[in-house]
Design a protein around this nucleic acid. Structure first.
Lengths: 238, 238
DNA sequence: CGTACTATTTATAAATA
DNA sequence: TTATTTATAAATAGTAC
């Protein structure tokens, strides 16, 4: 349509390209609007102008919902494979529906495949991190076996032990005899060390030592965990 | 175009609607292809057929990148606000660009706003869950204060205690005197209870009781944690 | 950049196979 | 159903403002 037939290939002249974009964008938006209205369907159209500005059309909220589904995958288990399935259908559909004598099929195909891979990858990643979180934040009612419960306990205990040892290690480096209550009360006069992170830690240890003492009182068994430590263990208060 | 002028409003007859969809979909895809080729732009088109089947077109990989950005938000901090920004631009642009005498502007506007809210909500949610995970999986070297370290320990300990109490509770419900080694060896003859979850748990407790005994040997201080439990505490083996 | 004007091409509604 | 034909409506390339 138009005075002359225009070959479908990139327009070289920048001004012409911009003009054509403006005109055809308007047309495409109108067509999209008409189709979505006539057939009462959800439709979204996203494009970037030659100067890379975003232009968007969407008929309903469905497309946003699809994006939300992408994002909310962890929460909405039942919709997890929705997209993957529709993309699979699409690969077939595209070859059927897109009957233009241009070598676009391949590009579309590989785009879709990349998208599918990405979705798969993300689903795997999600599954992994969900499992990881379950290890830490278990719902005790949900346990189905004692082994599971024990694995959880072991995991928590080892993390806890690691943290406790770390603190114990830091305390022992900060004063020569941190194992007695006497010496723990003396740590208020320390000089912070050079290393920035440790300096900050040690600057807080006067407060921390008191907290630790109270902590041990609350949990009499707790200090026993420290006995596995390489550094001097804190003694149980009598 | 066509024998008669067609009003742009939802087609009532299902068959006609389906026919019009097929025809206009093809046309829209062609237009989208032509525009994206002529102007060398990134373009994506997503639509759902009247029977809710997905049809997609995309000119390059850009749109997938945008989706990937949505999805990868947690990983790619620097691109976190890209979409939000472009959506902001869009709100202005839409009013300018979409010059059709139809009351679509408002709908588009509110769609965009919803999207923006969704993005904000997800960013908040992400931040929260990241913090939550840090509580569980701390890098001890990263601690900047003793309070932080202690908060972490308390958190781990309370989770651990919760799990331990839960197990203790289940064991005590499953046999009358779970506190002696003798009675723990007798639990192999239990009748599983009616409740499905608990039934599964209890079916495993013969094995579990042995595991627990070994566990207590490995961590002599561990059973002391149980003393805060409401149910009968497990005794420390002598 | 936007509009307005055509001469043409293109899309497609309705009919038909 | 789905594909093809045909008459007509719509889009737009080139042009000028």
């Amino acid at each position: 349509m138009g005075r002359a037939k225009l070959e479908i290939k990139p327009i070289q002249k920048s001004t012409n390209r911009q003009i054509t974009y403006s005109k055809r964008k308007k047309g495409l938006l109108k067509k999209a609007y008409e189709l979505s209205t006539l057939c009462d369907i959800d439709l979204a159209l996203l494009m970037f102008s030659p100067s890379d500005r975003l232009c968007l059309f969407s008929s309903q909220t469905r497309i946003e919902d699809v994006l939300a589904k992408y994002i909310n995958l962890p929460d909405q288990e039942r919709e997890k494979y929705y997209l993957l399935r529709t993309l699979e259908q699409l690969k077939t559909e595209n070859d059927m529906a897109f009957q233009i004598n241009e070598p676009r099929h391949e590009a579309i195909h590989s785009d879709v495949e990349e998208l599918q891979k990405e979705v798969c990858r993300l689903q795997r990643q999600l599954q992994i991190s969900e499992e990881e979180l379950r290890k830490f934040e278990p719902d005790p009612v949900r346990f189905t076996s004692m082994e599971e419960m024990e694995a959880c306990e072991t995991h928590l205990l080892s993390t806890l032990t690691r943290v406790v040892h770390r603190r114990e290690h830091l305390l022992s480096r900060s004063c020569e005899a941190p194992s007695t209550q006497q010496s723990m009360e003396n740590i208020e006069g320390w000089e912070p060390e050079a290393e920035s992170k440790q300096a900050r830690i040690i600057a807080n240890s006067a407060y921390a030592s008191n907290q630790l003492r109270r902590y041990i009182c609350w949990f009499p068994s707790y200090d026993l965990l420290l006995q596995g430590s390489n550094s001097n263990p804190t003694q149980t208060p009598k």
